Every structure is written in C-alpha cells, then in structure tokens.
Amino acid sequence: MKKIAIAAAIAALSAPVFAQSSVTLWGRINTSVESIKVGNNDRVASMVNNNSRLGFKGTEDLGSGLKASFALEHGLNSDDGRQTSSAFWNREASVQLSGEFGAIRLGRWTPGSYYATADYVSMHNHDTGTSEDKLYSGAGFTQTNKVGYFTPNVNGFNGEFTLHAGEGVDPRGYDVALNYDQGPMHLGAGYSKQGSAKQYAIRGLYELGAFTFGGYAQREESGTPQSPGAKDSRWIGRAAVMYTLGQSEFHLNVGGTKAGAFSFNNGRNGGKQYTVAYNYNLSKRTKVYAFYTAVDASTPNKRDDLNSLAAGIRHNF
C-alpha cells in the first residue's frame, strides 16, 4: 500500500510536466512510376522515391514564453524501403530554444538559403525525384554541425543565420536566409559560403487569382574551376507558373545555366531543364500527379541528358 501511495504521488507531481510536453510523428510517402531515359541509353521503367521521410518532433512549454523543441527526420526510399544515406537521421537532428527573441538551434538541418529560394519556386512536387531542380547550385551548403539563429517574424520579415563548425575536418561554413511573406507577395534571398565556394540567390513569387508566378536567379562561385576550361562562376535561373482550377493544379517551369563553376556534373556542362506537371489534390494531405521533365545538357553525346514521364502518389501524415 505504501509503494502504491508513493507511485501515485510521483505521478501527480509529474502530471503538469507531461501536460506541457508533446511529441508528434509525421512524414511523407511520395512514390512514382516512371519511364526514364538517360543519355543515349534505352528507356527504362522505374519505381522512383521522391524524398520520402519519417520524422519526430516535440515541444515543451517552459513558461514565460520560452519553449524547448527537437526534430528528428529520417530519409527513406519508398521504392525499396532502404534508408537514403549512412546517417539514419540524415534530414534533420536538432534541438532548439525559442521565445520572443526568436530561436537558437543546434544540430543538423537543411540550409535556410535553399528553402528561401529554389525550394520555394519548385511548386509542382517539392523539388524531389527526377523532376527536382537539376541546375540549382549547392555551393557552400552544409547540413551538419551547425548553430543557427532564427529571427521572430516582424511584419512578414524573418531571417536565419547559421554557422557550421568545421571541427578541424573541413572549412567553416556560413548560411544566411531572408524571407518576406505578406499577402500575395513572397520574396526571399539566400547566401552560403564554405571555403572558396559560395552562392547567393534571390527569389520572387506572386499570387494573382488562380495563377502563381515565381522564379529565382542564383550566382555560383566555386573559387577554383573543377574541370579544364570551366569558369569558376556562373548564373543559374528558373521561372515557374502554376494555375489552379478546383482541386487541379497545372504547372510549368523552365531553368537554365551555362557551363562553369562546379555543380551540375562537376562543371562539365551547362544545360536547360523543362517540366510540365499536373496535380490533383484528393485532400489536403494526399494528391495524385503526373509530370514530364527533361534536361538538355551541353555535354557531348548527350551524356548528361535526361527525360522522364511519370505518374505518382504523395501522402503526408
């Protein structure tokens, strides 16, 4: 009886703490069936994973407007069930304190400069799979060993400022993202640098009735060309438009860059990419879609060309 009383007392004391905490399981399964042709190879029927993931996130209210939170996100291949890299929490593993001052985050996560620019414009399938933006530069991007400050939202403006600790293994890196979202206007800018490699980009997106127009321009500077005759810098750009009709979305986007720097197949080529897509939203969490995407590269013998005709299902949970 005494042990029961003690256990009941501990539970009573713990109850308010547990009431302040919450943990959420969430994720996305996004899989498509595609007919893919790469270079001069024969066309192949494939099942393709489109950045599926599984995550846990939690928040504890510490009082006085202060909150502690964490996020763990695992990337998985929905076509065969394997994880997407050797690191299990390869998409995010972070802990954060937030309040009226904004937020301080430690750990691993995707650079804010990417979300502020290329990802925001990739409206048709969240910049995933074969129709992802093949041209956008990852110069200076780092995901691991980071400390970041996130500003509060002030009249539609917010920012992210991140430092990557090289830990004596690689150069320190920096990443900056700025966003403005107010009414139909959405603007963004990103900058990242690690060693001699850096990139900076600006993005705009405007909603006009059933239409949404977007685009970005990015400058990539590698510091050192990665292939003979390649330039160490170049411009990359993309334009996108979406038209909505009921539960249907119609998408078109076009991107292009010249040979140089070191992204897109190590600077061997420039290229253009075209994507036409259709989404039908069965609910807020589930959609079916189809798209055709093509990369027309300047590499000889169509070595880096790609085109795919796809149909898929995406479900968020």
Results as ranks from 00 to 15, higher is better:
307 N>G: 06
109 W>F: 10
51 N>S: 15
275 T>K: 03
233 S>M: 10
127 D>T: 09
13 L>K: 12
293 T>E: 05
80 D>A: 09
120 Y>L: 12
69 S>K: 04
209 G>A: 11
20 Q>G: 15
233 S>L: 07
57 K>M: 05
212 T>M: 10
189 A>H: 06
205 L>R: 11
166 G>F: 02
205 L>S: 13
137 S>N: 09
121 V>Q: 03
248 S>W: 14
113 S>E: 07
239 A>K: 04
62 L>W: 05
12 A>G: 09
271 G>W: 00
133 D>P: 04
134 K>W: 07
4 I>M: 14
216 Y>D: 01
193 K>I: 10
73 E>A: 02
135 L>R: 02
127 D>Q: 06
170 D>Q: 15
158 N>Q: 14
272 K>H: 12
286 T>W: 01
163 L>D: 05
48 V>Q: 13
298 S>N: 12
119 D>I: 02
235 W>A: 12
313 I>K: 03
257 T>E: 12
22 S>G: 14
111 P>W: 00
255 G>M: 01
304 D>L: 10
109 W>G: 01
89 W>D: 04
50 N>M: 11
158 N>D: 15
114 Y>K: 10
196 S>Q: 14
315 H>P: 00
91 R>E: 00
230 A>M: 09
256 G>N: 13
40 N>H: 14
238 R>W: 02
40 N>T: 14
78 S>N: 09
235 W>G: 07
42 D>M: 10
256 G>K: 11
61 D>N: 09
59 T>E: 11
300 P>N: 12
99 G>S: 05
191 Y>V: 05
158 N>P: 03
275 T>E: 08
113 S>H: 03
240 A>C: 10
155 N>P: 02
232 D>Q: 14
261 A>K: 01
190 G>R: 00
303 R>D: 13
229 G>I: 11
106 L>A: 15
